[in-house]
Amino acid sequence: MLELRLVQGSLLKKVLDAMRELVNDANFDCSATGFSLQAMDSSHVALVALLLRSEGFEHYRCDRNLSMGMNLNNMSKMLRCAGNDDIITIKADDGTDSVTFMFESPNQDKIADFEMKLMDIDSEHLGIPDAEYQAIVRMPSSEFARICKDLSSIGDTVVISVTKEGVKFSTAGDIGTANIVCRQNKTVDKPEEATIIEMQEPVSLTFALRYLNSFTKATPLSDTVTISLSSELPVVVEYKIAEMGYIRYYLAPKIEE
């Protein structure tokens, strides 16, 4: 028996919007720790990892570990039927081949339930080791989204370089080149507007902008984004989900042979 009640139901809608461009089908894993997911895109160069901790739910019952295969577009179609202020409850019985999403309006005058068929999905679960990163950049998520969008109108790839001067995003295409430098800026009115660079040593890596633009679909989930870079390691782009957990994206760098 599984029953997860999320008062802030709109958060689940935002989580789906943050993943469905990258991944079509995925297994959602429920355990005592929380509601989680790990899935790769079809070319296996990008990965999304989600954790919504059990403590973040108003009610969390998960009698035994359960993995539920879902088509994210179908799940999104169902969640779009929930109002933004609705409370969402996810329910499933042991051994069943469906999941029920229950939507309650805030004053309890409307209750809806949508049952969705589950799928069998073969997915590879990667063991991602903890790593020390050469540079970690924290910046406003809206600024990162703007940079990725702007640069993708010029080129297909971005070089992200971190030095003590700041973080530089560079691209080149048929029509020309573009460089955007963000300097460390801790002296802002609101902490979420700061750009903070923790650098052990300079690092420069190249990534496909198409994937980074997909990652920025998570912007509504968090005011800030953390970008962790190391030579020869996938970049980690993390959006913290307040009081619940995180959505992390991993992307393999492009390598010049």
């Binding site: 070319s43 296996h44 160069v45 990008a46 990667l126 996938p234 042979e257």
Partner: peptide
């Protein structure tokens, strides 16, 4: 030529 390793190469084989 530019190419991309997969995440499986990074996390399961390295």
């Amino acid at each position: 030529e530019v190419f991309q390793n997969t995440l499986v190469d990074y996390f399961n084989n390295k």
